[in-house]
Simulated scan of single mutants.
Amino acid sequence: MSLLTLEISGLAALPAAAAQVREALRGHSIICFEGEMGAGKTTFIKALCQCLGVQDEVSSPTFSLVNEYRDAQNQPIYHFDFYRLDTPREAEGIGALEYFDSGYLCLIEWPSRIEELLPPDRLLITLTVTGLETRELKIES
């Protein structure tokens, strides 16, 4: 079921798109980001974290697998990048299930790599390249 579709015209449009997505997140803690390499998953997560009041530098956890940030209410936000994983067992090894059960916001890049570990109650955000700088963002539950 699609909840929201946004056309993002470029980097300057990211803060407004992130604000709209922030509203759609209410009541959800597991947010999955899909899109081809270079679609802008990490870039969008940076804008979303900024919108949530994160003061830390947001970067891809490609090698560490998970980064932790703090939002404006000093609550943790966990940012995962599972691109480099070969099996879901590797995610279990870093305690992914405990993070997912924490109730805190978990932003997950490449969730298809650990599909079997994900809870059914989650949002899927798909970023699709539509032009050199343009993207379509779709939120589904």
Rank of each mutant, 00 (worst) to 15 (best):
M1C: 03
S2H: 09
S2I: 11
L3A: 06
T5Y: 01
T5K: 15
E7N: 15
E7L: 12
I8R: 07
L11W: 09
A12Q: 15
L14T: 15
A17W: 12
A18D: 06
A19Y: 07
Q20V: 11
V21L: 15
A24C: 13
L25Q: 10
L25A: 01
R26S: 15
I30Q: 14
I31W: 04
C32A: 12
C32F: 08
F33C: 01
E34T: 15
G35H: 02
M37Q: 10
A39Q: 00
G40N: 10
K41E: 02
T43G: 06
F44N: 09
F44M: 06
K46Y: 06
A47V: 04
L48Y: 05
L48V: 02
L48R: 03
Q50W: 07
C51D: 15
C51G: 09
L52T: 03
L52Y: 09
G53T: 02
G53N: 01
Q55C: 04
E57A: 12
V58P: 05
V58Q: 11
F63P: 09
S64K: 03
Q75S: 06
F80T: 08
F80V: 01
F80W: 05
D81M: 04
F82L: 08
F82Y: 03
F82V: 00
Y83H: 02
R84Q: 04
L85C: 00
L85M: 00
L85W: 00
D86C: 03
P88T: 02
R89F: 08
G95I: 04
L97S: 13
E98Q: 11
E98C: 03
Y99H: 06
D101I: 03
D101A: 15
D101W: 07
S102Y: 05
G103W: 08
L107W: 08
I108K: 01
I108C: 06
E109A: 04
R113C: 10
I114Q: 01
I114M: 02
I114L: 02
E116N: 14
L117N: 06
L118Y: 14
P119I: 01
L124F: 11
L124S: 09
I125Q: 12
I125D: 00
I125P: 10
T126F: 08
L127F: 11
T128P: 06
V129Q: 15
L132R: 10
L132P: 05
E133C: 04
E133F: 12
E133I: 09
R135T: 02
R135P: 02
E136M: 11
E136Y: 05
L137D: 03
K138M: 13
E140N: 07
E140K: 08
